[in-house]
Design a protein around this nucleic acid. Structure first.
Length: 434
RNA sequence: GCCGGGGUGGGGUAGCAUGGUUAUCCUAUGGGACUGUGGAUCCCAUGACUCGGGUUCAAAUCUCGGCUCCGGCCCCA
């Protein structure tokens, strides 16, 4: 006997049916926003991931040397692959490109709540536009797809910030070591205020600077009004341009009816180094789970990969947290596998069964039949377990008179009909339910 | 990599503190009966102490280690 590898999952038919339902709802919403689906290989050169994260990243990857001596990794995220494609095919593509994908990803990490070693992650990105309307599309698509799954503003919070703004703000305070501060701000929710202050002192900030940072971080709240307030207290050319674009995003999200979903929250920085502007995260309001979405603007990645300048904005959403949140709200579907019709047999009627199968399947029904030589009673039991809507009984005795029996399993109502009539037009006797 | 708590048939469990007959019950699965309508009911069968070492006359039970699951730290793309 073999066991499943740590942090991986098996999906049995019923579970698969449920996931399929969730994924197709998500795909439907995204395609309504004009995104097209793409896919890339599950394996890539290791360098694709070490270029921005350094060699240490190998600890968190499923990486190995292939027979040609190349270092290969299973993809831990999709963005590098998509940007690789974009850079190499930029000449033939038309922009903006709105792409989405639901890849399987692998990360060699310790599994925890909402975190696995193999998982699915929805990615959507818009490439080629620096306009805030691209940011708006991405954020609203995220909100809309959650709404279509059954969430509302009492369940989720979209926390938005902007890295450039934070950077400008820190520069104005005379703080140069921007990334060090980001790292500490990113931790703020997990640590005490005292530790937070001590860490900032640890990177040589003075008390005045720390106080200013506190005030700035506490400016979180309703997106539009927070931005308005900021625009009054922080002047300067760099800042005001950023504020203008955030204001546009905020206003538009309000116009789309998403005012109560979005919060301005300058403590959102995201761990990833490649973000260059707007960043956002989606959390459950109770903060019971880790972030459901994370994303933002990453305008420099294409250049880092050796291509021309291609601005980009997007997000990723893992399926593990999504499932936890949907189960908590009781909106994760309890799907059952189902077929339209099961054919039970009595006696030697194989040729008649074959004809019936062919006819029914030709009309688009999902059909199955007994291949276990069970007695009638057990065939009926099995049909019930398959979730069949109809049971067709083909028996030697009735067949001598040209008849078969059709039972609707839900109601139990049963009719005897002519075999020939039935197989010449099965649709007139059945209702397709799937 | 580190810390805490768990692992009893396919699923859910009783037993474990205080070591001692054939390891409990429900469910699932397979078969049978009900002579072609019993999707019910009844009967039968299959099937487990996570793995390895230690203590002991004797280990599901005590002990150590591995694996793994759950949660947390690191990290989070």
């Amino acid at each position: 006997m073999f066991e499943r590898l740590r942090g991986t999952r098996d999906f049995l038919p019923n579970e698969m049916a449920a996931r399929k339902k969730v994924f197709s709802s998500i795909k439907k919403t995204i395609e309504e926003f004009g995104f097209f689906e793409t896919d890339t290989p599950a394996i890539e050169l290791f360098e694709l991931y070490s270029i921005k994260s350094g060699e240490e990243i190998i600890e968190e990857l499923y990486a190995f040397e292939d027979k040609g001596g190349r270092m290969i990794s299973l993809r831990p995220e999709l963005t590098p692959s998509v940007v690789r494609v974009l850079v190499s095919r930029a000449k033939e593509l038309s922009f903006p490109a709105k792409w989405y994908s639901i890849p399987r990803l692998w990360r060699y990490e310790r599994p925890q709540s909402g975190r696995l070693r193999e998982f699915y992650q929805l990615n959507i990105d818009i490439f080629g536009s620096e306009d805030p309307r691209a940011d708006i599309e991405v954020i609203s698509c995220a909100i809309k797809l959650l709404c279509d799954l059954g969430f509302d503003e009492s369940d989720i919070e979209v926390r938005i910030s902007d890295r450039r703004m934070l950077q400008e703000f820190l520069l104005n305070l005379g703080i140069e070591n921007y990334f060090d501060v980001l790292k500490i701000i990113d931790k703020r929710e997990k640590i005490s205020e005292k530790d937070f202050n001590e860490m900032l002192i640890g990177i040589n900030l003075n008390n005045d600077q720390i106080k200013e940072i506190e005030i700035f971080l506490n400016s979180k709240g309703n997106f539009l009004s927070s931005i308005d307030a900021l625009s009054k207290s922080y002047k300067g050319e760099g800042v005001s341009r950023i504020i203008e674009s955030l204001k546009k995003i905020a206003q538009d999200l309000n116009d789309r009816g998403y005012e109560n979903f979005v919060t301005f929250d300058p403590s959102i920085v995201r761990g990833l180094d490649y973000y260059t502007g707007m960043v956002f995260e989606v959390h459950d309001r109770k903060r019971e789970f880790r972030a459901l979405f994370g994303g933002g603007r990453y305008d420099n990645l294409a250049e880092l990969f050796g291509g021309e300048h291609i601005p980009a904005v997007g997000f990723g959403m893992g399926d593990a947290v999504l499932e936890l949140m949907m189960r908590r709200k009781n909106i994760w579907p309890e799907e059952k596998v189902q077929i339209d019709i099961f054919i039970a047999t009595i006696g030697n009627v194989e040729r008649e069964v074959t004809k019936a199968l062919t006819s029914l399947r030709g009309s688009g029904f999902k059909v199955d039949f007994d291949i276990m030589n069970r007695n009638l009673s057990n065939q009926i039991k099995f049909a019930d377990k398959l979730g069949a809507n109809y049971l067709l009984i083909i028996g030697e005795r009735d067949l001598k008179e040209g008849n078969v029996t059709l039972r609707e399993l839900k109601s139990g109502s049963e009719t005897k009909i002519s075999y020939n009539k039935f197989i010449s037009s099965p649709s007139s006797h059945l209702t397709k339910v799937l």
